[in-house]
């Protein structure tokens, strides 16, 4: 992979995993404010937030990927990503650096990663002291509200 734009990932921590969200998707990163809860929705959907007049669907990345909701701590953040005409807010435990994965090989996920988790990631990059799972943001759009895909290992 080449260095530079397109290869920059925001490194997020979710339930012990390091997940990279491509910076191109990211609009902004906010402190976690509790969104407006929407009844009858699966647990991973934390609700809706009014972001300057636009509605942001707040998705708990912890619930989606690890099956445990992100706790509201001072470190918790909402990573706002824009995909197509939808704006999603990804709730993560904390946000670390922006890393440039250019020049590193994107590998497949190791075999011990359960199938339910695999679908969220497009690949994995080895960092000097970390494994960065690259989030496939598009799959988040296909999360089913009936919870079919929300079940996690």
């Amino acid at each position: 992979m080449k260095k530079g734009p397109g290869n920059l990932y925001v490194c997020c921590h979710v339930g012990g995993l390091h997940i990279g969200v491509n910076l191109d998707w990211v609009q902004e990163i906010n402190r976690l404010t509790e969104p407006t809860f929407v009844p009858m929705m699966p647990a991973w959907l934390r609700g809706l937030v009014n972001l300057r007049g636009n509605l942001v669907t707040v998705v708990d990345l912890g619930s989606v990927v690890c099956g445990a909701p992100v706790e509201k701590t001072s470190a918790a953040r909402t990573v706002v990503v824009e995909i197509g005409d939808e704006i999603l807010g990804l709730v993560v435990d904390s946000v670390g650096d922006v890393v440039d994965v250019g020049g590193r090989a994107v590998e497949g996920l190791p075999s011990h990663v359960p199938a339910s988790q695999r679908s969220w990631f497009s690949g994995m990059v080895q960092l000097p002291d970390d494994l960065l799972l690259l989030l496939d943001v598009n799959t988040l759009r296909t999360l089913e509200a009936d919870g079919a895909r929300a079940g996690c290992a």
Binding site: P35, T36, V38, M40, M41, L45, G47, L48, V49, N50, G53, N54, L55, T57, V59, D85, E86, I87, L88, R141, L143, E144, A145, D146
Partner: peptide, 26 residues
């Protein structure tokens, strides 16, 4: 306001809006 597709499968909701005081309402 347009909603993300996640809400499409819930028949209860037709959409969402932002009320006068800035809060979101389904």
């Amino acid at each position: 306001k347009p909603l993300s597709r996640h809400f499409k499968s819930r028949p209860e909701y037709a959409g969402a809006t932002i009320l006068g005081d800035g809060t979101v309402a389904m």
